[in-house]
Computed example of a mutant assay.
Amino acid sequence: MSIIIAAGLLLGAPIVDSHRVEIDHQGQRVAVTYHSELAVTHRQVGSAGPAGRPSTLRCLWKANVSVEREARSAAGHVLKRTIASDTPIEGSRPGWCSGQSAAIEQEVAMRSDQVRAHLLAVAERDREALALELDAAHSPARG
Rank of each mutant, 00 (worst) to 15 (best):
D126E: 09
A31P: 05
P14Y: 09
L60C: 07
L11G: 13
A13T: 11
I5A: 07
I3H: 01
S73E: 02
I3K: 14
L130F: 08
G27H: 01
I15L: 08
P94W: 04
L132H: 09
T41E: 07
A31F: 01
R29N: 08
G76N: 03
V16I: 06
L60D: 03
N64C: 08
T87I: 08
I23R: 14
L134K: 02
G99T: 05
I83Y: 09
W61S: 04
G99L: 14
G49T: 00
A102N: 02
A109I: 07
A102P: 01
L134A: 12
V78A: 03
G95K: 00
A121Y: 02
D86N: 10
P88R: 04
I23M: 15
V45F: 12
A13G: 09
A121S: 07
S47H: 06
G91F: 01
A7K: 02
A123E: 02
G99M: 14
I4N: 02
M1E: 11
P140S: 04
R93N: 08
G95E: 00
S101Y: 14
V67C: 04
R43D: 13
I3S: 10
V45N: 05
L134E: 03
R111M: 05
G46T: 00
G46M: 00
V122M: 01
D24N: 03
A71Y: 00
E105C: 06
A63I: 08
R81K: 15
S36R: 00
E107K: 08
V45D: 10
H138Q: 07
V115C: 08
G12Y: 02
M1N: 12
S2R: 06
E124I: 13
S18D: 05
A71I: 08
D126L: 07
T87K: 10
L134Q: 09
A109H: 00
Q114N: 13
H42D: 12
E37N: 15
I3C: 11
R58N: 00
E128K: 06
P88M: 09
S112G: 01
D17I: 05
G76A: 09
R81N: 08
E90I: 04
Q44E: 03
R111K: 06
G143L: 06
Q100W: 15
E68N: 05
G91W: 01
L79N: 06
E128T: 08
S98A: 04
A6E: 13
G52D: 09
L10S: 00
